[in-house]
Design a protein around this nucleic acid. Structure first.
Lengths: 189, 189
DNA sequence: GTCTATAAGTCGATAGAC
DNA sequence: GTCTATCGACTTATAGAC
């Protein structure tokens, strides 16, 4: 298989732990996902797990990084950026455990001392950098009002998506995709 | 003073604990605010504190309810609802500890089993009920586009405010009030 | 009614044997 | 690389003093 180097086993085991953690979060939720429970699911002792991920938070950050990577790969195969973004939101509605992990970790990461603080700041910058060009191009095409500040649009769509996710977790009848689409409609000339 | 009934002392003590908890959260943040630390600040044992509030989460819910009550009272003295809402957002930027508590507890409360789940669902319904009438009146006056669904507007403003608060905690240079005002501008005919 | 003392059980994390 | 053993800190529950 891939990676017959010195760390091949370690990398495979990391992947195995990530999958086990995802399964635990999906079924029992983020709140009940203790290091012990994830270690049990991965067939490992808690200390064994922490050999691969330095701390509980680092494990969770690794999970979110893996999701980001997947989402970006999916978006690349999509012709339209807006459609790709809406597709990610639509997909999120099918993995409540992951959304819970994202929202909760982000709320905790407001504290600059939190282990995930750097990750979320970097993620925000990267997502905005990835979309800024496409957004400005859409404004030049006339698909989006040119009098609106592109950075304001990105901050707003991002904040709206995050806020709708917490609203949806509190009340699953909330239609996140429909509400986002309504907002995007307001941006058109 | 007010309340010389049988429970006067208990009520006063509850208030004292609430203030101590607020002080701890403001200085050390929500994350480090353990029951023991708050109890110490209030000059009480952990068990003594839990006599007044059944659990840590109930104490935090009581703090948020006290804030809501204050915010609503402030809003009532304001002639314009939009101005009152923006004033609350502006004030929030001066109490990061409270915003952290709100965001984090709300993220945790996505789980229906969480002790604060009912509080946040009730709060959302109450806030929306309080504003729906004013919003529809504004649409009839022509201050806000009449072709927009009032419930969509409330969900969006609410979600945007929540999302901007987490963005602001990650990056304090974010101007929550300015971004909200920009959005409100889009709603005008 | 108010509160202290105490204890049970779980958590994330570490040290060191193998 | 993985384990056992163990740490200190945490929430929560209970018995009973005042």
């Amino acid at each position: 298989m891939a990676g017959r180097g010195v760390y091949a086993k370690g990398i495979a085991k990391r992947e195995e732990i990530l999958q086990a953690a995802l399964a635990v979060i999906a079924s029992h939720g983020y709140r009940a996902a203790s290091v012990r429970e994830i270690a049990d699911a991965a067939g490992l002792s808690p200390a064994g797990l922490l050999h691969y991920f330095g701390s509980k938070e680092e494990l969770f950050v690794a999970i979110l990084e893996a999701r980001d990577k997947q989402d970006f790969a999916d978006a690349d195969s999509e012709p339209d950026d807006i459609v790709a973004f809406l597709e990610v939101m639509r997909h999120n509605a099918s993995v409540p455990g992951l959304v819970q992990l994202y929202s909760q970790l982000q709320a905790e990461a407001g504290d600059p001392e939190h282990p995930a603080h750097a990750y979320f700041r970097k993620r925000t910058a990267e997502v905005h950098d990835a979309f800024r060009g496409h957004l400005i191009a859409a404004q030049e095409r006339g698909d989006i009002r040119a009098d609106l500040d592109p950075d304001w649009i990105m901050r707003s769509v991002h904040a709206l998506a995050d806020g709708l996710q917490t609203a949806w977790m509190l009340d699953p009848t909330v239609d996140m995709v429909a509400d986002i689409e309504q907002f995007l409609g307001l941006l058109r000339p």
